[in-house]
Amino acid sequence: MISAHNLSYKINKNTLFSGLNFDCKSGNIFQILGSNGSGKTSLLKILSGITNPTKGMVTLKGSIRKLYLGHKIPIKDYLTSEQNYYLLNGKDTLKDYDAYCDLINLNVPKSMLSANLSFGQKKKLILSKIFNQSYDILFLDEPFVGLDAETVMIIKKQILEMKKKGAGIFLTSHQETLEGDVLIDLDKGEIS
């Protein structure tokens, strides 16, 4: 579905990674490992089309619905969490707000502005996008950070479900490991 041909990326003279070649077919999980600053996020951003690589190319086959969820939280502070939910997922969503809250036990008073939500609660709100739309490729940058154990289980279950439905998933995570079909280690630069 998405393949990379000798990708390399350089920021102001230091090369983060070079010569990466891989091909992601539908239904497999790529786990990206590497120390801090080894370019994990940059690789995800290149694959999702946000930044251009210094060398090499990323090719997508067919019209691919992809999503990149990074460290930043695109939640509007001046809106309530329900308004944010419908802003992120559009009006006609599979799960409406209350159903999603019960699923992921996000109990927040209706009228409270999301400025005073905790980091974990905001993260739960964004991850709602995975539950509502079916994506072909997902780029998740440290999705489990700031989430309690029970939510991590729910998210993992949803990711495996999407894997069965044929989605390609790129994942970077330090603590939680998910049995990824392919491991990309940026420090050593190999793909196993």
Partner: peptide
């Protein structure tokens, strides 16, 4: 500024 800093533009581009 607001949409740039909280990453909404990035998400928008990645979604095409």
């Amino acid at each position: 500024n607001e949409d740039f800093l909280d990453g909404s533009f990035e998400m928008l581009i990645s979604e095409g």
